[in-house]
Simulated scan of single mutants.
Amino acid sequence: MEWRKNEYLITDDKSRVQLDVVHRLLAATYWGSRRPREIVDSMVAGSICFSLYCGSRQIGFGRAVTDSATFTWVADIVVEPEFRGAGLGQWIMECLVAHPAIKGTQMVLQIRDAQGLYEKFGFSGNSALMNTNVTGL
């Protein structure tokens, strides 16, 4: 699937993930700083990925690990520092929660920051956050 907004594009096409970019973005975070490149390759292969582009440049990433029936783990939502504050992380989340393979599952995540972003999607707290707007379980 693809979503467009102005000059930005989000795609779930794993073949378009720029693995070096994702590795670098995650290496700059508190949660992904110790992940070797091989681990990033493996996690991308086993996830539904949401790659954010400005033109041909990948500037963001997010992923979901799911059984597509009852459970989804939301992980690794990250945007290049120079593009933050423009609502792009929120847009990644909007695309993620609306994705047909994920929609309607119970969603969880674990964070230490950005609670305001995730509260907009029904998450609360900061340790194993749970979407309370889930239907069909």
Rank of each mutant, 00 (worst) to 15 (best):
M1S: 13
E2T: 14
E7R: 14
Y8A: 03
L9V: 12
R16T: 04
D20I: 08
D20K: 13
H23Y: 13
R24H: 11
L25K: 08
L26G: 02
L26I: 04
L26A: 04
T29M: 08
Y30P: 00
Y30R: 10
G32D: 01
G32E: 03
S33R: 15
P36G: 08
V40T: 09
S42L: 14
M43C: 12
V44T: 12
S47M: 10
C49G: 06
S51F: 07
S51C: 12
S56G: 09
S56F: 09
S56N: 13
S56D: 15
I59L: 09
I59W: 07
F61P: 00
F61I: 04
R63G: 02
V65I: 15
T66P: 01
D67P: 06
S68T: 13
S68F: 11
T70W: 11
F71D: 00
W73F: 12
I77F: 01
I77A: 01
V79Q: 03
E82I: 11
F83C: 08
F83S: 07
A86I: 04
G87R: 14
I92C: 06
I92D: 01
I92W: 09
E94Y: 01
E94V: 05
E94C: 01
C95Q: 10
V97N: 01
A98N: 13
H99F: 04
A101E: 10
I102T: 01
K103G: 03
G104M: 04
G104E: 04
T105D: 04
Q106P: 00
M107G: 02
V108W: 08
I111S: 13
D113A: 09
Q115Y: 00
G116W: 05
L117C: 03
E119H: 11
E119C: 07
K120H: 15
F121W: 12
F121I: 09
G122T: 06
N126L: 05
N126K: 08
S127C: 10
S127F: 13
A128T: 14
A128K: 07
L129T: 06
T132M: 12
N133H: 14
G136W: 05
G136F: 10
G136Y: 05
L137F: 11
L137N: 03
